[in-house]
Amino acid sequence: MTENLLAELAQLTARTRQLQSLVPQVQGDGPFSGSDPDGAVSAEVDRDGTLTKVEVDTDWKSLISPDALGAAVRGAVVAAGAARMGFEAPTREDLAKDWSQVELTGELPEATPTPEDEEAVAEQVKAQRQVLDDAASRMTMAEAEESFLTQLDRLREVTSVLAEPGADTELVSENRMIRLTLNPFGQVTDCHVESRWADRQSGRALSMAFAELLDQRP
């Protein structure tokens, strides 16, 4: 076991801990609800932050204009997500920001291994050495080394997935009047509703349309 490999293991342990610390803690089991600032739309998300319900008020057109419906849905979803994390509901100013233009993927500061990280690595190495000793009669040293390096590659993959989770996807209604954008974790980040179509719909009809759309998810 080289010092470089031990140092890399400690660095990976520190980076994994750093990434995990960025994830807020969920407040309870849910469901969690929220509404847009005008009260035209309410939404519910589950413990994982997945949208489970959208309800449009029966008198929604007296509260917002049809072309504001998509933004109201997004606002309700954001408010429900905030409740899930124990945060206050977002303000109009928060919802007005174009978050797609805000850089959220900047470089994280270098993760410096702590004594606890190094101790954890030492314990892992000790356990791995025991595995190697136990396996000595069943595999060559080259095979044992390959097994250990495979485990190290898996740890690298975990940190990579946390840092770069993947691409957004879209849900589109059958009549193509509603479009929801989902992040890689299945959480809604945007909503578009065709305003001329929405203007002819009741709150109940819109709520049913969203329910049918959400049922399309795998």
Rank of each mutant, 00 (worst) to 15 (best):
K126N: 15
E123C: 07
M141L: 11
T189S: 12
R138H: 11
T140V: 09
T181R: 13
E44H: 04
A14N: 01
G81L: 00
V158M: 15
Q130M: 14
E174F: 11
E55P: 00
T114W: 15
D133S: 13
E212R: 05
L104Y: 08
L12E: 13
D59L: 04
H192I: 03
P90I: 11
T16C: 10
A111W: 08
G203N: 04
A167S: 07
G34P: 04
A80T: 02
I64A: 00
E103S: 08
A120S: 14
L104I: 11
E145D: 11
Q130C: 10
R217Y: 11
V78C: 03
T52I: 14
D59P: 01
S65K: 06
A96I: 07
G30W: 11
L22Y: 15
Q101F: 12
D57M: 06
L95Y: 07
V121E: 15
E107Q: 10
T189E: 14
A7R: 08
V188I: 09
V172E: 07
P115W: 15
G28S: 03
S207A: 04
G70L: 02
V172Y: 04
G28M: 03
N175E: 09
V41H: 04
Q128E: 15
L5C: 04
A40K: 01
G186F: 14
D48F: 09
L214F: 12
F87C: 03
D57E: 13
L69W: 00
L155R: 08
P165F: 12
D59M: 02
D59Y: 03
S62Q: 12
S195K: 02
A136H: 13
A198V: 04
L19F: 12
S202K: 00
S62N: 06
G106V: 04
E3W: 09
S202H: 01
M177W: 02
V158T: 13
E3K: 05
F210Y: 08
F185S: 10
L162C: 04
D153G: 05
L214E: 12
A96M: 12
R138N: 09
L213A: 05
L182P: 04
R217F: 15
E107G: 06
L51G: 00
G39W: 05
A127G: 08
I178T: 00
N4T: 09
Q216K: 08
E88V: 08
V23H: 13
S195W: 01
E110A: 11
E143Q: 12
P31Q: 03
G34R: 01
S160E: 15
D94C: 02
T2P: 07
A136Q: 12
V77G: 00
S65G: 03
V161H: 09
R17K: 07
L108P: 06
A136M: 14
I178P: 01
L51V: 04
T159N: 14
D67E: 09
G75C: 06
N4Y: 14
